[in-house]
Design a protein around this nucleic acid. Sequence first.
DNA 1: ACATTAAGTGATT
DNA 2: AATCACTTAATGT
Length: 216
Amino acid sequence: MVNEIHFLREKLDQQFTGVFEENLIDEIVKTGYLKHIDAGDLLVDIGDEMTHIPLIIKGLVKVIREDQNEEELLLYYLEKGDSCAISYVNCIHHSQSMFRAIADIDTECIMVPVNKIEEWLIKYETWRVFIIDSYHNRLLELVDTIESLAFLKLDERLYKYLKEQVNVTHNKILTITHHEIAQDLHTSRVVISRILKILENKGQIKLGRNRIKVKA
DNA sequence: ACATTAAGTGATT
DNA sequence: AATCACTTAATGT
């Protein structure tokens, strides 16, 4: 038990020192628990009632919106040091999640219980700033994806998507299928294959099975 | 060897 | 840009 607490504190210090004050880190360690999500597993599903807020310690979480036909659209990614402010509001209002959050790779997060959220908002300046910044960041990312949807042609959107994947995975060689890309961008596999081929002919990428190399 | 999944492509809307 | 229909290529059992 004591070991686990030290372990949690270590993880928190790695990601959130300078962000959270000491007393707050103490409280997070006391009331939160560590959760491991394997690649491909769900952190939150559409319709879930939120009881905890995730603070991402390591890994990568993909946040998705789904329509009635089970067709998806990628909204944004959460990385280490991030949280999802949308879930704060869900917690406070006991409303259901509109989004699905899937671990892209093995991910660890600290789950913080709802009842602490509001308490800390009043008690800790750093928590207040963190929550508001988090909300702001999610909003900026959403605006960015809306802009892409509205203003970019699919080929530009796809190339932007590939560059984002490189950033987020820290790897120029993406392990991904055309089908998966099509789902994220809410289009069909055939269309993606075609545009990728054009990008390859232009020398911007190199294609392989389950593999796309993005050239600098 | 056979089945399954990923990717490439022409033709049509 | 989407859909259909079909082919080819790679991978799993």
